[in-house]
């Protein structure tokens, strides 16, 4: 039976959780709210969450020689159209999706067989290799960024998709996570597959991978979130070519110039960037639960 603590303790627990949730949500709240409001409302911090949505005049548009009527819109439309106009946001989103998906796919192609070998095959030196995997988990990315950059520069790969993808293709975290999960798959299942005529690679892709759907989802969330949101590495290796910008790099386009930062469009861009992640997470969450029930590992 579950132990029921006193109402006071329960109230305290909830209070702590609510405060925690607020701290996490507050930046998102601000982002969403700014993406809806006019520059004046943002500066003066008025207008509540939605802003008054009073029609406003886009001064830049007027400067280009259009009439004031043509340049009058409401703030939410202004912010979101600016997000797409001022920078090639669709291009950035495509780059982000392409890079993130490539990284995740190649990570899987490397991590799943490696995890299988580390968990289910007996070979000389296995423990040493696993120890090295654990050791690599301790190396922070920023520590090896410079050597990595130099290596990529030496082979002339900076300012390419390859520079964005290659350094992340071996995920020791992925290997570790999948290995821990594969350890729980019964050996009998693998032996049965061998008797059924599967090669070791077939076992990896046809037996281990489908049974590991929950672990896969967890890994996917970590990998995709990390690389979709990554600002540091693209900033290092993409130095001029705007065609290759990922969404977080794209955000810089709105950084203040002579006329100050364009907060509204910037936050609109940020909102657009996080939406795919949130959508993907909600989908994955459903799959995650399905994965657990389907595999019969309740």
């Amino acid at each position: 039976m579950r132990h029921h603590s006193s109402p006071l303790v329960e109230a305290f627990k909830h209070a702590v959780l609510i405060v925690g949730a607020l701290i996490v949500i507050l930046p998102f709240y601000t982002m969403l709210s700014y993406s809806l409001k006019s520059p004046h409302e943002i500066e003066t911090n008025t207008g509540g969450f939605f802003g008054a949505q009073k029609p406003m005049v886009d001064e830049y548009c007027v400067k280009l020689g259009n009439s004031r009527e043509q340049c009058t819109t409401i703030p939410v439309v202004y912010n979101y159209t600016q997000a797409f106009k001022k920078a090639p946001l669709l291009r950035y989103l495509f780059n982000g999706a392409f890079v993130t998906a490539s990284i995740f796919l190649i990570q899987l192609i490397v991590a799943v067989p490696a995890a299988y070998a580390l968990s289910k095959l007996r070979w000389w030196g296995r423990e040493t290799v696993f120890a090295m995997v654990l050791f690599c988990l301790l190396i922070p990315v920023h520590a090896i960024a410079l050597p990595l950059y130099i290596m990529l520069a030496k082979v002339g790969l900076t300012n390419t998709y390859a520079a964005l993808i290659i350094p992340w293709t071996i995920s020791v975290f992925g290997i570790f996570l999948m290995r821990q999960f594969f350890k729980t798959v019964p050996d009998d299942l693998i032996d049965a597959a061998r008797l059924d005529g599967m090669s070791e690679l077939s076992i990896v892709w046809r037996v281990m991978l489908p049974t590991a759907v929950p672990a896969l989802m967890a890994f996917a969330i970590f990998s995709v979130v990390a690389h979709w949101n990554d600002y540091f590495w693209p900033r290092v290796v993409i130095t001029g070519n705007r065609e290759l910008f990922t969404p977080p790099l794209g955000l810089r386009e709105f950084r203040g110039g002579a006329d100050g930062s364009a907060w509204g469009p910037m936050m609109a861009t940020a909102t657009i960037i996080v939406i795919p992640l949130i959508a993907a997470f909600l989908l994955a969450q459903k799959k995650f639960i399905e994965g657990i029930t389907l595999s019969g590992m309740k």
Binding site: P186, D191, L195
Partner: peptide, 14 residues
């Protein structure tokens, strides 16, 4: 050319 039945059945769960 032999087949084996395991104690844990070892069916493919998916």
């Amino acid at each position: 050319d032999l087949a084996m039945v395991f104690q844990s059945y070892a069916l493919y769960p998916h």
